[in-house]
């Protein structure tokens, strides 16, 4: 690998820019392929380019053959992140399931009695206000956000801070009635129906979930659907 390519790859990773490194394993020539039209390095067959972009979307590195040559496509996607607003009962299984599914999880709850890190072993827990944490975290297209407190004082600032962002999933716990009132509040604050339409509420796939762990599974299933089905239809 050329030194310049390694530095560029490291810089892209630092900047959380999705990139695939394609290596022709015979001669060792290499190309960086981005989601948009851009590439950097050796020219690649069109088919390999398409395969590299598909690999980025599917989040899966793979070796392919083309014209008698072998290419290895290594996907360097920024980490998946899940921010959970509210250190409530459902949060415990949800944080665990999301970690298993490969997400970096942050639990945010300004109520210190809830946000006791002993209840969330191995998970980042913040007692700051959600809009402060989210403002710094720069949520991107590989970020999901779930609000679970039911408390407008805590949930609403979180939603307001990310409704205009590129996050791929927003979910809010609450009945249809609670969610209806939430939408009214957000519209009064000037958010459009198109923006608030991105919120999955009531949160989670309808699988009849009752216990906190089951509700966590329904939420994680909905997040997975949002991520994978969008990729399958050509989105991020």
């Amino acid at each position: 690998m050329k030194r310049g390519m390694l530095d560029r790859l490291n810089a892209d990773r630092e900047n959380k820019r999705p990139v695939a490194l394609v290596s022709e394993t015979g001669a060792g020539s290499q190309t960086l392929v981005y989601e948009d039209e851009q590439t950097s390095g050796e020219e690649l067959p069109q088919e390999v380019l398409s395969q590299a972009r598909a690999a980025l979307a599917n989040d899966r590195s793979e070796a392919v053959e083309n014209g008698g040559k072998q290419y290895f496509i290594q996907v360097h996607n920024p980490p998946l992140r899940l921010f959970i607003i509210g250190a409530v009962h459902i949060t415990q299984p949800l944080a665990q399931i999301a970690s298993l599914a490969g997400y970096g999880v942050t639990v945010i709850d300004p109520r210190r009695a809830f946000a006791d890190s002993e209840r969330f072993p191995g998970i980042e827990v913040s007692t700051e206000w959600p809009d402060d944490v989210l403002g710094r975290a720069a949520p991107d297209r590989r970020t999901a956000i779930v609000t679970l407190t039911h408390d407008p004082k805590i949930d609403d600032p979180a939603l307001e801070s990310i409704l205009a962002s590129e996050v791929f999933y927003i979910g809010s716990l609450g009945s249809n009635r609670t969610h209806g009132k939430r939408l009214v509040r957000l519209h009064e604050k000037g958010f459009s129906e198109q923006q608030t339409g991105r919120i999955h509420g009531p949160v989670g796939l309808n699988i009849g979930a009752k216990s906190p762990a089951e509700i966590a599974i329904s939420i994680m299933a909905e997040i997975t659907e949002a991520r994978r089905m969008a990729a399958a239809s050509g989105g991020a």
Binding site: R3, L6, D7, L9, N10, R13, D59, V75, H76, N77, P79, G102
Partner: peptide, 17 residues
């Protein structure tokens, strides 16, 4: 895709440096 792999490529650059 993991933090660990981050370290590998950064380590490669640091060792070259």
């Amino acid at each position: 895709m993991t933090a660990r792999q981050d370290d590998i490529l950064k380590t490669a650059a640091a060792w070259r440096d």
